[in-house]
């Protein structure tokens, strides 16, 4: 067993783990952070993407021991004080997910891209997510979702509540 101390979503986590434990399984099985999905297991699909020191990586191809002393951010770390990250809001606004399996990885890559390049072109977004597969083939809406977040760096503000919340409220009012 090897002792690790890893910052996960801002909190320090200490565990004794088998060195062969992959980061994706450490997050899901040891810490219960199942928001990170476990997909192809072969570094291809990218649904297991998390941020390691702010850069997106495929957590099926990183040993958890390699993250010792480093900072990991998962999809659970996007929401702050009950407010969704603008990238998450973008996926709601622009229908960025269908089945949702690739979504956590797409969100983490989108967040990392915008942190480094706040105003990416569509081409830069496509390049950023080129290591990730959406088997619903919903790439166009994923690009639009990340672009929405670039256009709304503060997310949905009160003044814009009509864009998302308004539509939902209207539907609820119909039966009444």
């Amino acid at each position: 067993m090897t002792h690790v101390s890893i910052e996960i979503n801002g909190a320090q986590v200490e565990r004794d783990i088998d060195p062969r434990t992959l980061l994706v399984h450490f997050l899901r099985d040891d810490l219960g952070l199942t928001g990170t999905h476990w997909g192809c297991d072969t570094t291809n699909c990218g649904t297991c993407t998390v941020q390691l020191d702010g850069r997106p990586v495929k957590s099926c191809t990183v040993l958890a021991v390699m993250a010792d002393g480093h900072a990991v951010r998962t999809v659970e770390g996007l929401e702050v004080d009950g407010v969704l990250d603008p990238v998450q809001q973008g996926f709601m606004e622009e229908h960025g997910l269908q089945c949702g399996f690739c979504t956590p990885g797409m969100l983490m890559t989108g967040r990392a891209l915008l942190d480094a390049h706040p105003h990416p072109s569509d081409g830069e977004i496509r390049e950023a997510i080129s290591g990730q597969i959406c088997r619903c083939t919903g790439y166009a809406t994923i690009v639009r979702s990340i672009q929405w977040a670039a256009d709304h760096p503060a997310g949905i503000t009160n003044g814009e509540a009509g864009e998302a919340g308004g539509a939902a409220e209207e539907k609820e009012e119909v039966p009444a």
Partner: peptide
């Protein structure tokens, strides 16, 4: 080379 995520490692 591979993709941007692989190139980060």
């Amino acid at each position: 080379i591979a993709d941007p995520l692989v190139r980060n490692r």
